[in-house]
Design a protein around this nucleic acid. Sequence first.
DNA 1: CGACGTGTTGAAGGAGCTCAATCTAAGTGG
DNA 2: CCACTTAGATTGAGCTCCTTCAACACGTCG
Lengths: 257, 257
Amino acid sequence: MSEHAAILIPMLRKLMRWAVLDEEDRSAILALPHSLRTFPKGSCIVREGSAPSHCALLLSGFSYRQKTTLSGSRQIVGINIPGDVVDLQNALLPMADHSVQVFTEAEFAMIPVPALKEIAFTRSAVGLALWKETLVDGSIQRQWTVSVGRRNARERIAHFRCECGYRLEAAGLGLRMHYALPMNQEEIADALGLTAIHVNRTLMSMDRAGLTSRRRHEVVIHDWDALATLAEFDPSYLFLDLDAPQEHRGDWLQSAD
Amino acid sequence: MSEHAAILIPMLRKLMRWAVLDEEDRSAILALPHSLRTFPKGSCIVREGSAPSHCALLLSGFSYRQKTTLSGSRQIVGINIPGDVVDLQNALLPMADHSVQVFTEAEFAMIPVPALKEIAFTRSAVGLALWKETLVDGSIQRQWTVSVGRRNARERIAHFRCECGYRLEAAGLGLRMHYALPMNQEEIADALGLTAIHVNRTLMSMDRAGLTSRRRHEVVIHDWDALATLAEFDPSYLFLDLDAPQEHRGDWLQSAD
DNA sequence: CGACGTGTTGAAGGAGCTCAATCTAAGTGG
DNA sequence: CCACTTAGATTGAGCTCCTTCAACACGTCG
């Protein structure tokens, strides 16, 4: 267990988005026991069906949640960016309902599940923040279901790109209209319920239309409004807007204290 | 606010599935302030974008969560059966990311959000149970995404029917292989990301194959194994199995007390 | 009885899939 | 530094699952 308290700052920053944390809450979070681990490209952090003993906080790199079918195909049901507590779901339930893997080499802080439960249930503001973190994950998941169920390929890709832009910008990892995300076309296809070939055709068509362009894993959005309109993108489901939550935090503190 | 403590028993039964609740926890749950409300067929309990002041516990009837796109189509992202706390998600976050409507006339116990927050954060076992309730919702949501993203019409319908059978049986509302669910074919289509017409063709084909049969809103599954194999159905994502959680409850009590 | 919601069926078209081939660029080893 | 390897991107052709549009059947309920 490391003493480098500063390591957990990305998690703290994320949690402060969801609840008002006082000085003690903040230092309790930073004092959480943890060990650093680096996972090589493509490796598995949590395996579906297992019972994880540690909760993984993503520090650098990108990971994703996936479920596989017996027939070999897979569905990526979510992606994680640095600062995300990757398997809070898996930690509290008796077994993981999905796997977590990394796109590229990634660094994690592994926090023992009992320590996380301890802080969640002794410091109610921290508990609220962690709970909300899982609820926002749920909101994103529902939007994901809508994309896969009711949008065509072009709309799905547009929506996915808008979502990534917003989330990466909020995490300070790029600009909404210009960011890097290390997913190849097969992975994008598995995320959106399409095939890699059709993803390719759609990407090419969007580039040719002047909406976007790509270079390696970099995405550039030239006409944000057109893309957002196409996707019917409304970022409120991400709960990144700090105004509404601020007001809510006040409400919460009243009833909690 | 009613004094009919017994009204909240379905909620208690559901929460006891997720955590060990002692005598005090149980009576605190049953003592939650609430009022009864009956909603007519098709009415809206929570509207997307609103900030609900009450949390709705479904007592009788069936409801569903949905998101609509500007172009008019909708995606049903989940269904609720009696005993479900329908909008825990919406209550803790500053606004609802999705709507909740009822299929048929339904009865709810409306619990004020502050009271629910109060009990969740003063009684940690209750808080854990409520949190887990939302996490299991998330697990079901992920499975839903997989269905819509990676299964064909026949597999989606088979999976949906297996899931409904399991959940209804667990709630004591029917048998896995014979139950009633008041959804018409258009609603099934909106849940599975299909069109009503294709749902109809697929249902007819499954009936003709001797897999299932229907009468009004009753579903009869004649060959469970064939249906489950077709759907690749594995019920573990529902966390209905009480054995594993039992063990986990023990773990939790140790670190919580 | 007629109206309406729901289920059922047909025919035609399209979005996306499968299979297969080719091309490109980032490594890698000599 | 260059030939070689390889993962990934790109393109074509044919096919299928599902959609769309349109019509009709059936039971319920005013």
